[in-house]
Nucleic acid binder design. Structure first.
Lengths: 158, 158
DNA sequence: CCTGTTGCTTCGGGTAGCTAAGTAAAACAA
DNA sequence: TTGTTTTACTTAGCTACCCGAAGCAACAGG
């Protein structure tokens, strides 16, 4: 087995681990990974609009509406008509949503972060360089990408 | 922004790229990524049982049944009662399924492979070491992982 | 036989995603 | 002012994926 295959297998392990993480998180937080991702985006800035979420998550606004509906239903966020532009709806975090974000287990990410920070300096540098290299080899281009290991659900097609 | 964040962002880019790939593939092959993954598993050995698929993909048998239904409906595979144990159903590839697998674009994987193989020897070695390291940091444990960049969840259909 | 286990399917139900169509408000124009 | 276009969001309807529970065969042991 050559190096190319080995690297593909490692990549696949990474993908799997992240996928499984999404499921764990969903179970622990009472939210699905996608819903949690929306909550994270809202929490990042305290408030945001549906449009913003749809752009950042690369899903349609209709999808955002239904995701937000679920979060509202669970009391994680609230909708507030914007005062400055009444077409817009600001989605704001409730205390419960705030608490959920803070308590989120982040089991996998924590494990990763802990291990990463335990590495020698040169090892960290090597990993960063390698990961960026691989990302560049895979990407078509842009992509925002926040420092969050969540993967908004893996599925789906265009 | 520290190295930990940078590495998380790179990981996220990798996940996204793979996710998008799933969509492309789905569109090109007329199958969703998940369906395609089932087809790959069947193709790998020429035939396999529903149980096997459910274990390898880590989904329930009920899910496998419905996925296989769709592949059968599209003429990609056939069900055959096992002669040795009539509880089992062997899922076998049809010529059409075979052709689909062979023609699969694999755009992303090809791009990655090409670029990977163009690297200097020492760079390849570094990437492999790094990826394996990261995979180990994320994984809980086992996982089979075939040398296929597919990510068995990303959906979307024809 | 009777009982238990295994392999698969069926059924019902939830989440996630999309498109198309509709409403409302803002922006721009005539 | 009035009309048109654009933007932001929601509604409605559909598909895919996934699961658990329940059902049905068929094997396996006693």
């Amino acid at each position: 087995m050559d190096r190319t295959d080995i690297s593909l297998i490692a990549l696949r392990r990474i993908l799997r681990a992240t996928e499984l993480f999404g499921k764990q998180l969903a179970q622990a937080a009472g939210l699905t990974a996608v819903q949690f991702r929306v909550l994270q985006l809202v929490a990042e800035k305290g408030t945001c609009t549906a449009k913003e979420i749809s752009v950042r998550m690369r899903v349609s606004q209709a999808t955002v509406t239904s995701l937000v509906d679920k979060l509202v239903h669970q009391g994680m966020v609230e909708r507030q008509r914007s005062q400055t532009d009444r077409r817009q709806t600001n989605i704001v975090l409730t205390p419960k949503g705030q608490a959920t974000i803070e308590d989120a287990p982040d089991a996998l990410q924590q494990r990763y972060v802990r291990k990463f920070e335990a590495l020698e300096d040169w090892e960290q540098a090597m990993l960063v360089a390698s990961l960026e290299r691989v990302a560049a080899m895979l990407d078509a281009g842009e992509l925002d990408a926040a420092p969050v290991l969540d993967m908004g659900d893996f599925r789906k097609p265009s």
